[in-house]
Design a protein around this nucleic acid. Structure first.
Length: 801
RNA sequence: GCCGGGGUGAUGAAAUUGGCAAACAUAACGGACUUAAAAUCCGUCGGCCGCAAGGCCCUGAGGGUUCAAGUCCCUCCCCCGGCACCA
């Protein structure tokens, strides 16, 4: 019996489509399961990363469906973005045309993999029916003060010619093109994600089904540091300079303060500085440096002569410096320097020969003097030289001193967050227009709901010459003010595309709903996403933004959940020769070629079997042959079917396998071991020569989520009329797992020396008698005393001599 | 520096959470079938000693707890990821 995978796979793909078997419908009587994979950018072709991501998701969806859940498994396209504009320039086609063509190609390839999507719910974010709701959500945010415009220094990618959010700057470069990011002063739109910082951090605690890795990444990104602000007064005019510290316990050791070169106070006190020329020169030099240059070099800085400040906790007069190792963007842009307990301050103070004072005793050193110090002591110890706090452990003093300063009015408890508001303006065409009109008399006016969507004009020229293409479309820019009807100007920036993907999982719940972004009833039923699957590269960007949007939509009353994704699986990358597959490295393996050569089922099997889903997967062409051989081995089992009952042994193996596979699926989707268990079962059947029909049916059912086409074909060949999809996942019966005799390991002093077959649950006394009388054991016991006889029931005995 | 994850045969990996380390597969080697090849089937496959029976060693390194450690504890090395002159 020949296995013509081309015929068989397209036959079943057509069958599934025609019968609409993957269509999801709200059914309050059934328990739902929402399985979601991160939707792709429509580049035109799927790559191995997609294949892996979507294969994992498909197995989950198919398995859960067989387990009786009402499964929602949608797919769509994250269709806005710059590559469409670049392609438009290159091929002289409209970005819309190019994007939709790519989506069509990709759909064909996805269907060839046999993925079980409900295509009726397909969402494309570049569709006005979708981005209308981006605009609606934006306006709702603006009503609540969560979307606002401000002038600021922003990240600018000179190659993409657009602004970037902080999250889009990776190692100082643009996330898309890697070009070094510059700073530019611009007035731009922001979303106030900072208003949700506490909830975004605290609710990470709810995400027990997320990996520690992703949780840690988000924690780092949000970057909460608890400390206090301390008010230092200028001696000359009592002007306040605030500094931020997380180490209030070291404040008695503060022997000078340092301002960032950009600190505004510098301008205020300029006239008082006696070495003004030197200071101004230093500041200019510092500002000219890039951030990387500032970090590379040692610590430089100059003293502000003619001014000084008072340490508020001990009223000491101390000098003021300006130095570029202090950053304006962190804390208040000014620090108190404690050279004895901060390494940076230590290096600076040594260089400038500044005074130091130890205020925390290092418990490991007997006597300590400032002269002995070779580096700052940053560990814990008891306070000294700290007034009424002397003798207190520093961790306790940290809190007590901060509180005391707050009571005295010389400081304030404060928390610093690393997370900054989300810059969303992009100077590009292919994105959601920001629904704003600028009017001379009314100011910034939001487009009224009834006028949404603000559609992208079709009639544009994309030249790549810089500046937003929308600026040049008169009909788009020139509008009447929605309030006063006078001529006004439309906003020409579009929204960051990460907005599109921040709520698409909600749109899938009711993709054609017209009254609001989604139907509350449908969302209440389907959300949360039970299993979300995608790449680790979205650990911060997309996952943080989606959590933010979900919380906002909850505050709007549209959803009842705090978090959008219950379980998160971040699949590992697909590597070739130890490197990520990429065009530039020229090490791409095209999935389409593999499908043509082996079929989708073999590709699916290989990807699932070669490594656990979270681990990186090394592409190995030879190992694919192995998957193909296994599929053929299973296929040929059809020739071995007979009517007789199975042997007890095979029945036991069968039920053992059902149990093992079920546990692997439920306990974290360990597909690789699930498949290996089925391989063992198949090997067992081959040893038995024949297999009865019922047993083979179970093998087919167990394999069906992994290789759905071949499974359906075999299922039909075995005489079944109904599709496997309507068949339940097999269950195991403990009674078949029972054995009456077991083989136990005999250890002597923890080393395996022999094995013995005994009846199940043999008593310790009986075992002792049986084991000690064996020649192999006697040999080892010779001249030795039995100390202990340890029994692990039905597993092993250990003799201690 | 801080936080998170790792380190097991030639290779991808497995090990019921403290109980036979290396399941399953890939590669390699040997054999059967074949005029031959492919396919298929059978066997060998961590290291050292030994003709063999068998013995000794082995999960990054070292120490510890335990009858028993890949798994728990301590010290250290290395790799990957995030954050970082973060005060």
């Amino acid at each position: 019996m020949n296995y013509d995978f081309k015929k068989i796979e397209s036959k079943w793909q057509k069958f599934w489509t025609d019968k609409q078997v993957f269509k999801a419908k709200l059914d309050s009587k059934k328990e739902k399961y929402y399985c979601l994979e991160m939707f792709p950018y429509p580049s035109g072709r799927i790559h191995m990363g997609h294949v892996r991501n979507y294969t994992i998701g498909d197995v989950v969806a198919r398995y859960k469906r067989m387990c009786g859940y009402n499964v929602l498994h949608p797919m769509g396209f994250d269709a806005f973005g710059q590559p469409a504009e670049n392609a438009a320039i290159k091929h002289n086609a409209h970005p819309r045309e190019w994007t939709y063509k790519c989506m069509d190609w990709m759909k064909i390839e996805l269907k060839k993999m046999g993925f079980s999507y409900d295509w009726d719910r397909e969402v494309a974010t570049c569709d006005p029916d979708y981005y209308k709701w981006n605009q609606w959500i934006f306006l709702k945010m603006m009503e609540r003060g969560l979307a606002y415009k401000k002038a600021s220094s922003v990240n600018w990618c000179p190659s993409c010619e657009t602004t970037l959010a902080n999250e889009e700057v990776i190692e100082g470069g643009c996330w898309r093109c890697k070009e070094p990011v510059m700073q530019k002063d611009l007035e731009q739109w922001y979303l106030k994600i900072s208003q949700y910082q506490d909830r975004l951090l605290d609710d990470l605690g709810q995400l027990s089904n997320w990996s520690r890795r992703v949780i840690a990444m988000q924690e780092n990104w949000i970057g909460k540091s608890v400390g206090c602000e301390v008010y230092f007064k200028l001696k000359e005019n009592r002007q306040t300079i605030s500094v931020f510290t997380t180490r209030a316990d070291t404040i008695f050791g503060a022997t000078y303060i340092v301002l960032a070169p950009e600190h505004p106070t510098l301008r205020d006190i300029e006239k008082r500085i006696s070495n003004k020329d030197e200071v101004v020169l230093y500041i200019e030099k510092a500002k000219a440096k890039t951030k990387l240059e500032r970090i590379e070099k040692g610590k430089t800085g100059v003293e502000l002569k003619g001014v000084s400040t008072i340490n508020p906790v001990n009223n000491e007069e101390i000098p003021i410096f300006v130095a570029d190792y202090v950053l304006l963007e962190y804390g208040t842009g000014a620090i108190m320097a404690v050279p004895t307990h901060d390494q940076r301050d230590f290096i600076f103070a040594k260089e400038k020969k500044l005074p130091m004072r130890i205020v925390i005793e290092n418990p490991k050193e007997k006597t300590q003097t400032v002269e002995d110090l070779e580096e700052a002591y940053v560990g814990d110890g008891h306070q000294i030289n700290s007034g009424q706090f002397d003798g207190m452990p520093n961790q306790e003093a940290k809190i007590k001193i901060a509180q005391w300063m707050q009571d005295e009015g010389i400081g304030k408890l404060k928390t610093h967050w690393r997370l900054k508001d989300w810059l969303i303006s992009r100077q590009r065409y292919w994105g959601t227009p920001i629904p704003i009109v600028y009017c001379k008399s009314c100011g910034i006016v939001g487009v009224p709901d009834k006028d949404l969507p603000v559609e992208l004009p079709e009639n544009i020229k994309i030249t790549g010459e810089g500046g937003s293409p929308l600026l040049k479309v008169k009909e788009f820019v020139q509008v009447k003010c929605p309030k006063c009807k006078e001529p006004a100007r439309r906003e020409t920036d579009t929204m960051a595309t990460f907005i599109d993907s921040s709520w698409y999982f909600l749109r899938y719940c009711s993709p054609k709903f017209e009254k609001s972004p989604f139907d509350k009833k449908e969302a209440a039923y389907w959300m949360k996403v039970d299993q979300y699957i995608g790449g680790i590269e979205h650990a911060i960007l997309h996952l943080l933004y989606s959590r933010f949007f979900t919380k906002f939509l909850k505050d709007l009353g549209l959803v009842v959940i705090d978090e959008p994704f219950d379980k998160l699986l971040t699949q590992g990358m697909v590597l070739k020769d130890g490197e990520v597959m990429s065009k530039s490295k020229g090490n791409i393996v095209d999935p389409d070629g593999i499908i043509k050569k082996y079929g989708a089922d073999t590709l699916r099997l290989f990807i699932l079997f070669a490594a656990p889903p979270e681990a990186e997967l090394e592409w190995n062409e030879a190992a694919i042959d192995g998957s193909w051989r296994f599929l053929m081995r299973v296929w040929r089992l059809l020739e071995r079917v007979e009517d007789k009952n199975s042997t007890a042994e095979l029945t036991r193996k069968l039920h053992q396998t059902i149990k093992k596979v079920t546990l692997d699926m439920d306990g974290g989707f360990k597909f690789n071991t699930a498949i290996s268990a089925i391989m063992e079962l198949v090997n067992e059947i081959y040893k038995q020569e024949k297999v009865n029909k019922d047993s083979l049916e179970i093998v087919v059912l167990l394999l069906s989520p992994f290789m759905p086409h071949a499974a359906e074909e075999m299922w039909q060949a075995l005489g079944n009329r109904e599709t496997i999809l309507k068949t339940s996942w097999p269950t195991y019966d403990e009674k078949f797992l029972k054995v009456d005799r077991v083989i136990m390991v005999i250890q002597i002093k923890g080393k395996v020396r022999d094995k013995i077959e005994v009846e199940l649950n043999t008593a310790k006394e009986k075992l002792e008698e049986l084991v000690l009388s064996r020649d192999s054991v006697k040999k080892w016991m010779e001249g030795k005393q039995l100390k202990k006889f340890i029994v692990v029931a039905n597993k092993l005995v250990n003799i201690v001599i």
